[in-house]
Design a protein around this nucleic acid. Structure first.
Lengths: 111, 111
DNA sequence: CCAACATATCTGACATCACAAGGTACGGAA
DNA sequence: TTCCGTACCTTGTGATGTCAGATATGTTGG
């Protein structure tokens, strides 16, 4: 497995939750959004189990919507209250960690 | 397991390599440094296997040094050339990913 | 009608890696 | 002797991303 894939661990659920918080969406669409926004290498085999987990955890609600064009019905997700709270917590965790890591990476400036 | 632990995946090896790049060090000391610098929750059960992996990957070299005070000899690590290269790669990966994630987290500003 | 394609979701086997708990070993202090 | 701080390592467990493949729908072209 790739090193970037390891970096994604614990980050994907947070990103999906944030996307859903912006606007209800479905797996296939979110996979595309993530890639557009610079979080590459996310396969659908990661997306769907993660979305199920978010739903099982009571952070989002799922509902099916018939596709406008072609294809099978889409499973949309919208955020619910506990999800909003959790997203704030994860956001804080992320900021703290990423600040710490960046500090360590920049600690050894000898160029 | 904690969510923070998942966030650490793929980050710990990078941080340890960066610490070694600053100055040769040993496991017990690096565990303390990480905690001081804001990367919490790292247990020695994660540190030692990670250091072994870095060494097996040819990114660092290990050598034993007798302890000044008390305790068994310390296993110091110093960075070698491939490690310096890899550290730069990981650094770039990290910056890209963390920028992407931050952008997504800040994308849904509605407060 | 049938095949191929894009859309869309889901599953299972696999690998990676952080953690907790435990073990080993050394030296100094109570 | 017993405990504690230092220092290293190993084992089992759990979480989760990846790949490959299965399933289903509607459109398009032969």
């Amino acid at each position: 497995m790739d090193h970037s894939s390891q970096l994604l661990k614990g980050v994907l659920d947070m990103c999906l939750l944030s996307l859903i918080d912006e606007e209800p969406s479905y797996g296939y669409e979110m996979a595309a959004k993530l890639n557009e926004r610079g979080v590459k290498l996310v396969s659908d085999g990661s997306i769907y189990p993660t979305l199920s987990r978010l739903q099982r955890a009571g952070l989002v609600e799922g509902y099916f919507v018939e596709a406008d064009g072609s294809g099978p019905p889409r499973k949309y997700y919208r955020i619910v209250n506990p999800g909003t709270v959790r997203l704030r917590e994860w956001s804080t965790e992320w900021k703290d960690l990423s600040a710490g890591v960046s500090a360590i990476l920049n600690g050894g400036e000898h160029d």
